[in-house]
C-alpha cells in the first residue's frame, strides 16, 4: 500500500505514515477551523493498514499545538488504531518540557484508548 507523506502548514500537521516500516508520525500543529476533511484520508489509510499490519507498529505524536476541532479527529485516529489487530503497538506522545497542557492532553487520550502510551518529554519539538 502507498505511504502518506504530507508537508505541514501553519495550520495542519506533517504526516508520515510508512506501512512497510510500521511507523506513523504526526508532527507540527493541527489547528484548522474544520479538521474532518484533513483527517479523513488518514483514517482510511489506517483502515487499510489494519488489513496487513507489521508485527510492530510505532506511532509518534509530536504536536506543538492542536485545537479542539482536531482533538476529536485525533481520538478517531487512535480508535482506528485500536482496531488494528495482531501488531505490537505503542503510541509515543511527545511534549515539550514545562508543557503540562500537552502532557495532560496525552493522559486524557491514554485514559480513553486501549493502546500503551509512552509519554516522552523533549526539550524542543
Amino acid at each position: 500500500m502507498e505511504n502518506i507523506n504530507i508537508e505541514g502548514t501553519p495550520k495542519t500537521p506533517t504526516v508520515k505514515f510508512d506501512a512497510g516500516g510500521g511507523r506513523l508520525e504526526l508532527s507540527g500543529r493541527s489547528i484548522p477551523e474544520n479538521s474532518i476533511e484533513f483527517y479523513k484520508p488518514l483514517l482510511d489509510w489506517i483502515e487499510s493498514y489494519g488489513g496487513s499490519p507489521q508485527g510492530k507498529t510505532e506511532v509518534d505524536i509530536k504536536l506543538e499545538y492542536f485545537n479542539t476541532s482536531s482533538s476529536k479527529c485525533i481520538l478517531d485516529v487512535f480508535k482506528k488504531l485500536e482496531g488494528v489487530g495482531s501488531t505490537d503497538m505503542t503510541i509515543n506522545w511527545y511534549y515539550e518540557e514545562d508543557d503540562e497542557d500537552m502532557l495532560e492532553a496525552g493522559e486524557d487520550y491514554q485514559a480513553i484508548i486501549n493502546i500503551p502510551f509512552k509519554m516522552i518529554e523533549v526539550e524542543e519539538m
Partner: peptide, 20 residues
Amino acid sequence: YYKSVLNNGEMSSKGGGGLG
C-alpha cells in the same frame, strides 16, 4: 467533563465538538 464530551460527543458539520 472534557474527556466525556471528547469521547461521547457528536462532531458537528462545522468540525466543532462542543469542546471549545
